[in-house]
Nucleic acid binder design. Structure first.
Lengths: 205, 205
DNA sequence: TAGATTGTTAATCGATTAACAATC
DNA sequence: TAGATTGTTAATCGATTAACAATC
């Protein structure tokens, strides 16, 4: 019976991963929590505590092997598994995300684009063309899809989300400005751009 | 000598704002912390504590006036002031953000688009056309700009950021996958999309 | 006035930092 | 072996929740 790992820790893991990639690029083989803490501007204690939520990846007197730690964090974040994504909402933002996902991260594969606007149907975005929303149920029967990227206006977001859930989608990357009510086994990660912009605005006033 | 308001509180403010907008749309005139807590799935205690960081906006026995609280939170977030933005990096994502900022939030006004790629120069995005990066210093001399939206690859992000800072920009909305080192008086708000996607991936595994 | 609900103080819980024995 | 640095326990700090007197 493992203790739940806190949100605060999980939010920090991708940042560790990013810094370890950087170290790899610099051909640095090993690093101590102390040195890493200076680079990242956090305490060494926090780094060691965070990592030890998942296991002992270091060695006394040596520190951490960069390649090994990098790969382990990758596994923790599920980056070793293949993820198939569909885009729901192929407007400006959606198209940008579709391109972005393709180029930036292998193992995240965009496999279908959808939109409710019939005018967009057939439009090429990278290697894919946009399908109409009413083709979605059939598509999900014949393709394995892990994650739906939701880039639609907030007005329709909840109902489209419900549809996605009823079709068996277990992960939603939500760019709509609403909180989505989903069952426990469905995971939602929100990117609320306007919230982010408001926070910046606050910091500046 | 006021006590610093914690990041945790500030992150929640835009969400309150969003729910208050919703209440306004539903023509609900007043709300108690208890009722709001049910809608938002947080404790009433937290709502009252959060708000009282900024002042007493409620009234015993009555609750909070929705319009008033909405407007006050708007002021706290600086939404009453005009913000002029420029886009630095006019690729797919940048163009989507430019359109997004225009349509979604009044008081945030996109006033200039820039890119280092000469091929993009002159390209129309909404009402604006893309300028070359070397036109930026002159532009900033003649226009008041509060915020730069940084949508460029991480390789150039730090050096472009330094340039922006040296030209007097005080706020950066950073979509590049790096941490930007800036002086104290410059505020950075990060949108690390790949971090967000990794968090979703973690939750699902 | 009585009832409702705030603002605020106190109690609890969780996260971060410090310290150090274990050990490579 | 001696020095370095981890993993982990203990101490501190901060954030959340509970409680309740103040008051509309």
């Amino acid at each position: 019976m493992e203790r739940e790992i806190s949100q605060a820790v999980i939010r920090r893991m991708p940042r560790y991963y990013r810094y370890l990639e950087e170290l790899l690029n610099e051909n640095i083989e090993r690093i101590s929590s102390g040195d890493l803490s200076k680079r990242m501007n956090v305490t060494a204690s926090q780094i060691r505590q965070d990592l030890n939520n998942f296991g002992g990846f270091g060695q006394q007197g040596y520190g951490y092997n960069v390649q090994y730690l990098h790969d382990e964090i990758g596994k923790i974040l599920g980056l070793n598994r293949q993820h198939n994504l569909i885009l729901v909402g192929s407007g400006n933002l959606g198209q940008a995300i579709a391109n972005y996902v393709h180029f930036s991260k292998m193992n995240f594969d965009m496999v279908g684009l959808f939109d409710s606007n019939p005018d967009l149907k057939g439009k090429k975005v990278g290697p894919l063309s946009v399908m109409h929303m009413n083709e979605l149920p059939e598509f999900l029967k014949t393709h394995e899809v892990d994650i739906a990227v939701l880039t639609i206006p907030k007005e329709n977001a909840v109902s489209v989300c419900n549809e996605l859930v009823s079709l068996g989608i277990k992960g939603i990357w939500n760019f709509a400005h609403v909180d989505l009510p989903v069952p426990e086994d469905v995971k939602v990660e929100n990117v609320h751009l306007s919230d982010s912009l408001m926070q910046l605005s606050y910091q500046m006033s």
